[in-house]
Protein backbone atom coordinates (compact mmCIF):
# COMPACT_ATOMS: atom_id res chain seq x y z
CA UNK A 1 0.00 0.00 0.00
CA UNK A 2 2.41 2.60 -1.10
CA UNK A 3 1.75 5.96 -2.64
CA UNK A 4 2.90 4.46 -5.94
CA UNK A 5 -0.21 2.25 -6.02
CA UNK A 6 -2.53 5.19 -5.67
CA UNK A 7 -0.83 7.29 -8.35
CA UNK A 8 -0.84 4.24 -10.63
CA UNK A 9 -4.59 3.84 -10.13
CA UNK A 10 -5.15 7.49 -10.99
CA UNK A 11 -2.83 7.35 -14.02
CA UNK A 12 -4.53 4.19 -15.32
CA UNK A 13 -8.01 5.63 -14.97
CA UNK A 14 -7.23 8.98 -16.51
CA UNK A 15 -4.88 8.04 -19.33
CA UNK A 16 -3.22 4.62 -19.62
CA UNK A 17 -6.39 2.53 -19.33
CA UNK A 18 -8.92 5.28 -19.89
CA UNK A 19 -12.34 3.59 -20.11
CA UNK A 20 -13.44 5.75 -23.02
CA UNK A 21 -10.28 5.72 -25.13
CA UNK A 22 -8.40 2.51 -24.30
CA UNK A 23 -10.86 0.03 -22.83
CA UNK A 24 -13.55 1.40 -25.18
CA UNK A 25 -16.22 0.57 -22.61
CA UNK A 26 -19.55 2.36 -22.40
CA UNK A 27 -19.57 3.34 -26.06
CA UNK A 28 -23.36 3.57 -26.11
CA UNK A 29 -23.67 6.62 -23.81
CA UNK A 30 -20.32 7.92 -25.07
CA UNK A 31 -21.68 8.20 -28.60
CA UNK A 32 -25.33 8.92 -27.88
CA UNK A 33 -25.08 11.65 -25.26
CA UNK A 34 -22.00 13.54 -26.43
CA UNK A 35 -23.87 15.69 -28.96
CA UNK A 36 -23.72 18.71 -26.66
CA UNK A 37 -21.23 19.56 -23.94
CA UNK A 38 -23.95 20.06 -21.33
CA UNK A 39 -25.52 16.61 -21.68
CA UNK A 40 -22.03 15.10 -21.79
CA UNK A 41 -21.08 16.83 -18.54
CA UNK A 42 -24.33 15.83 -16.83
CA UNK A 43 -24.05 12.19 -17.80
CA UNK A 44 -20.38 12.24 -16.85
CA UNK A 45 -21.17 13.49 -13.35
CA UNK A 46 -23.85 10.81 -12.99
CA UNK A 47 -21.34 8.15 -14.05
CA UNK A 48 -18.72 9.42 -11.61
CA UNK A 49 -21.23 9.27 -8.75
CA UNK A 50 -22.50 5.80 -9.61
CA UNK A 51 -19.08 4.35 -10.44
CA UNK A 52 -17.26 5.50 -7.33
CA UNK A 53 -20.11 4.55 -4.97
CA UNK A 54 -20.68 1.16 -6.60
CA UNK A 55 -16.97 0.39 -6.47
CA UNK A 56 -16.92 1.34 -2.78
CA UNK A 57 -20.00 -0.72 -1.86
CA UNK A 58 -18.97 -3.77 -3.86
CA UNK A 59 -15.50 -3.65 -2.36
CA UNK A 60 -17.03 -3.48 1.14
CA UNK A 61 -19.20 -6.56 0.59
CA UNK A 62 -16.69 -8.44 -1.59
CA UNK A 63 -15.92 -11.06 1.03
CA UNK A 64 -19.59 -11.87 1.66
CA UNK A 65 -20.39 -12.44 -2.02
CA UNK A 66 -21.40 -15.84 -3.37
CA UNK A 67 -19.19 -16.41 -6.39
CA UNK A 68 -21.86 -17.93 -8.64
CA UNK A 69 -24.31 -15.05 -8.40
CA UNK A 70 -21.90 -12.15 -7.91
CA UNK A 71 -22.85 -10.43 -11.18
CA UNK A 72 -26.50 -10.30 -10.12
CA UNK A 73 -25.51 -8.75 -6.82
CA UNK A 74 -23.38 -6.17 -8.65
CA UNK A 75 -26.34 -5.30 -10.84
CA UNK A 76 -28.66 -4.90 -7.84
CA UNK A 77 -26.22 -2.55 -6.12
CA UNK A 78 -25.61 -0.56 -9.29
CA UNK A 79 -29.32 -0.36 -10.14
CA UNK A 80 -30.11 0.97 -6.67
CA UNK A 81 -27.45 3.67 -7.04
CA UNK A 82 -28.61 4.59 -10.54
CA UNK A 83 -32.19 4.90 -9.32
CA UNK A 84 -31.01 7.34 -6.64
CA UNK A 85 -29.13 9.43 -9.19
CA UNK A 86 -32.05 9.32 -11.59
CA UNK A 87 -34.53 10.50 -8.97
CA UNK A 88 -32.15 13.25 -7.84
CA UNK A 89 -31.75 14.48 -11.41
CA UNK A 90 -35.48 14.35 -12.04
CA UNK A 91 -36.04 16.43 -8.92
CA UNK A 92 -33.33 19.07 -9.33
CA UNK A 93 -32.66 19.27 -13.08
CA UNK A 94 -35.91 18.19 -14.75
CA UNK A 95 -35.16 19.74 -18.17
CA UNK A 96 -31.82 18.02 -18.41
CA UNK A 97 -33.36 14.79 -17.19
CA UNK A 98 -35.76 14.91 -20.12
CA UNK A 99 -32.88 15.48 -22.56
CA UNK A 100 -30.81 12.61 -21.21
CA UNK A 101 -33.89 10.40 -21.08
CA UNK A 102 -33.11 6.71 -21.22
CA UNK A 103 -29.35 7.10 -20.90
CA UNK A 104 -29.43 7.75 -17.17
CA UNK A 105 -31.22 4.46 -16.61
CA UNK A 106 -28.86 2.77 -19.06
CA UNK A 107 -25.93 3.49 -16.74
CA UNK A 108 -26.99 0.24 -15.04
CA UNK A 109 -25.94 -1.75 -18.07
CA UNK A 110 -22.88 0.39 -18.74
CA UNK A 111 -19.93 -1.93 -19.18
CA UNK A 112 -17.55 0.39 -17.36
CA UNK A 113 -19.33 -0.01 -14.05
CA UNK A 114 -19.70 -3.78 -14.07
CA UNK A 115 -16.25 -3.98 -15.62
CA UNK A 116 -14.60 -2.02 -12.81
CA UNK A 117 -16.60 -3.94 -10.21
CA UNK A 118 -15.48 -7.30 -11.58
CA UNK A 119 -11.90 -6.34 -12.45
CA UNK A 120 -11.03 -4.09 -9.54
CA UNK A 121 -13.52 -3.69 -6.70
CA UNK A 122 -13.98 -7.42 -6.17
CA UNK A 123 -10.25 -7.82 -5.51
CA UNK A 124 -9.13 -4.64 -3.75
CA UNK A 125 -9.64 -2.68 -0.58
CA UNK A 126 -12.52 -0.16 -0.28
CA UNK A 127 -10.26 2.91 -0.35
CA UNK A 128 -8.44 1.75 -3.49
CA UNK A 129 -11.74 0.81 -5.13
CA UNK A 130 -13.23 4.22 -4.39
CA UNK A 131 -10.17 5.88 -5.90
CA UNK A 132 -10.32 3.60 -8.94
CA UNK A 133 -13.99 4.40 -9.43
CA UNK A 134 -13.31 8.12 -9.18
CA UNK A 135 -10.32 7.97 -11.57
CA UNK A 136 -12.20 5.91 -14.15
CA UNK A 137 -15.29 8.07 -13.84
CA UNK A 138 -13.30 11.26 -14.28
CA UNK A 139 -11.40 9.74 -17.20
CA UNK A 140 -14.64 8.74 -18.86
CA UNK A 141 -16.19 12.14 -18.18
CA UNK A 142 -13.21 13.96 -19.69
CA UNK A 143 -13.50 11.96 -22.91
CA UNK A 144 -17.26 12.49 -22.94
CA UNK A 145 -16.80 16.20 -22.36
CA UNK A 146 -14.13 16.51 -25.06
CA UNK A 147 -16.38 14.77 -27.58
CA UNK A 148 -19.31 16.91 -26.49
CA UNK A 149 -17.35 20.15 -26.88
CA UNK A 150 -15.98 19.21 -30.31
CA UNK A 151 -19.31 17.99 -31.63
CA UNK A 152 -21.33 20.91 -30.29
CA UNK A 153 -18.78 23.42 -31.59
CA UNK A 154 -18.69 21.96 -35.11
CA UNK A 155 -22.38 21.19 -35.26
CA UNK A 156 -23.95 24.28 -33.71
CA UNK A 157 -21.14 26.77 -33.16
CA UNK A 158 -21.68 26.85 -29.39
CA UNK A 159 -20.09 25.41 -26.26
CA UNK A 160 -22.09 24.56 -23.11
CA UNK A 161 -25.42 25.71 -24.53
CA UNK A 162 -28.08 25.27 -21.85
CA UNK A 163 -25.65 24.69 -18.99
CA UNK A 164 -28.02 26.68 -16.75
CA UNK A 165 -30.36 23.68 -16.81
CA UNK A 166 -27.64 21.74 -15.02
CA UNK A 167 -25.79 24.24 -12.85
CA UNK A 168 -28.43 26.93 -12.41
CA UNK A 169 -27.97 30.59 -13.47
CA UNK A 170 -24.16 30.37 -13.10
CA UNK A 171 -24.13 28.08 -16.13
CA UNK A 172 -24.98 30.97 -18.42
CA UNK A 173 -21.50 32.45 -17.88
CA UNK A 174 -19.90 29.39 -19.47
CA UNK A 175 -22.03 29.41 -22.61
CA UNK A 176 -20.01 30.52 -25.61
CA UNK A 177 -21.34 31.14 -29.10
CA UNK A 178 -18.68 31.26 -31.83
CA UNK A 179 -20.82 31.33 -35.00
CA UNK A 180 -24.41 31.05 -36.11
CA UNK A 181 -26.05 27.64 -35.82
CA UNK A 182 -26.99 27.43 -39.50
CA UNK A 183 -23.32 27.57 -40.54
CA UNK A 184 -22.50 24.48 -38.48
CA UNK A 185 -21.91 21.04 -39.96
CA UNK A 186 -25.00 19.15 -38.88
CA UNK A 187 -23.29 15.78 -39.19
CA UNK A 188 -21.24 16.45 -36.07
CA UNK A 189 -24.38 16.39 -33.90
CA UNK A 190 -25.75 13.28 -35.63
CA UNK A 191 -24.62 9.70 -34.84
CA UNK A 192 -22.03 9.44 -37.67
CA UNK A 193 -20.33 12.54 -36.26
CA UNK A 194 -19.92 10.73 -32.95
CA UNK A 195 -18.09 7.82 -34.56
CA UNK A 196 -15.87 10.05 -36.70
CA UNK A 197 -14.99 12.32 -33.77
CA UNK A 198 -14.27 9.37 -31.46
CA UNK A 199 -12.05 7.86 -34.14
CA UNK A 200 -10.11 11.09 -34.51
CA UNK A 201 -9.73 11.50 -30.72
CA UNK A 202 -8.48 7.90 -30.50
CA UNK A 203 -5.98 8.64 -33.25
CA UNK A 204 -4.83 11.75 -31.39
CA UNK A 205 -4.35 9.73 -28.18
CA UNK A 206 -2.30 7.08 -29.99
CA UNK A 207 -0.30 9.83 -31.68
CA UNK A 208 0.55 11.41 -28.32
CA UNK A 209 1.44 8.00 -26.84
CA UNK A 210 3.71 7.22 -29.79
CA UNK A 211 5.39 10.59 -29.36
CA UNK A 212 6.11 9.85 -25.70
CA UNK A 213 7.46 6.40 -26.51
CA UNK A 214 9.78 7.68 -29.19
CA UNK A 215 11.00 10.40 -26.85
CA UNK A 216 11.71 7.79 -24.20
CA UNK A 217 13.59 5.65 -26.72
CA UNK A 218 15.59 8.63 -27.87
CA UNK A 219 16.48 9.51 -24.27
CA UNK A 220 17.51 5.91 -23.64
CA UNK A 221 19.55 5.86 -26.83
CA UNK A 222 21.34 9.10 -26.02
CA UNK A 223 22.02 7.79 -22.51
CA UNK A 224 23.54 4.58 -23.85
CA UNK A 225 25.60 6.44 -26.43
CA UNK A 226 26.83 8.75 -23.67
CA UNK A 227 27.90 5.73 -21.64
CA UNK A 228 29.60 4.12 -24.61
CA UNK A 229 31.38 7.39 -25.37
CA UNK A 230 32.65 7.55 -21.84
Amino acid sequence: MSLQDYTDIIKDGLWKKNPGLVQLLGLCPLLAVSNTATTALALGVAVIAVLSLSNLLISLVRKLLIQEIRIIIYVVIIAALVTCVQLLMEAYTPLLYQKLGLYIALIVTNCIIIGRAEMFAAKNSPLKSLLDGLANGVGFTLVLLLLGIIRELIGQGTIFMGLDEFLGPIGNYFTIRLFEADKGLLIAVLPPGAFITLGLVLALKNFIDNGFEQKKKRVKKSNTTDISNQ
Partner: peptide
Protein backbone atom coordinates in the same frame (compact mmCIF):
# COMPACT_ATOMS: atom_id res chain seq x y z
CA UNK B 1 -22.57 12.40 -48.30
CA UNK B 2 -20.69 14.20 -45.52
CA UNK B 3 -21.73 17.53 -47.03
CA UNK B 4 -25.26 16.36 -47.86
CA UNK B 5 -25.88 15.42 -44.23
CA UNK B 6 -23.99 18.40 -42.83
CA UNK B 7 -25.60 21.18 -44.86
CA UNK B 8 -28.83 19.95 -46.45
CA UNK B 9 -29.96 23.39 -47.60
Amino acid sequence: VFLLISAPL
